[in-house]
């Protein structure tokens, strides 16, 4: 029994991970932030063995997946796309139009909120 082996566990070949990065652009930084916050809430199911990291970069979301198996990665990405499309469709359908100040062409005042 050698106690010193635990730091070198990454030499096993099973630990080779499959990775994927998605970069999703949005029309506005505001939409990107909403989608980022909505999609950050749900954690990956523990049995899936997929690690998912979301980052918000301006008007873009970057998602990085690390999985032990390709099939788990596919499942994780498929369900992520499902959630993403539901969120972006909801934004499109229910976005509040700035009806208060659309009479003038003043773009600067539109961000008063």
């Amino acid at each position: 029994m050698q106690p010193s082996t635990d730091s070198g566990s990454d030499e096993h070949t099973e630990n080779k991970a499959t990775e994927a990065t998605l970069k999703i652009p949005f029309e506005t930084a505001k939409s990107a932030e909403i989608a980022y916050r909505v999609l950050s809430v749900d954690k990956e199911p523990r049995r899936n063995f997929v690690k998912k990291d979301l980052t918000l970069v301006g008007d873009q979301i970057e998602v990085h997946f690390v999985a032990d198996q390709v099939k788990n990665l596919r499942t994780a990405i498929t369900s992520f796309f499902g959630a993403l499309l539901l969120c972006t469709d909801t934004i499109k359908e229910f976005e509040l139009k700035n009806s208060d100040n659309d009479n003038a062409g003043a773009h600067a005042s539109a961000n008063s909120a």
């Binding site: 909403i34 916050r37 809430v41 909801t90 934004i91 229910f94 909120a113």
Partner: peptide, 16 residues
């Protein structure tokens, strides 16, 4: 459940 939750979250942020 997730369908309802995702839409509710999005509306909450959209409409503040």
């Amino acid at each position: 459940l997730l369908i309802g939750a995702i839409v509710a979250r999005t509306l909450s942020l959209l409409w503040e």
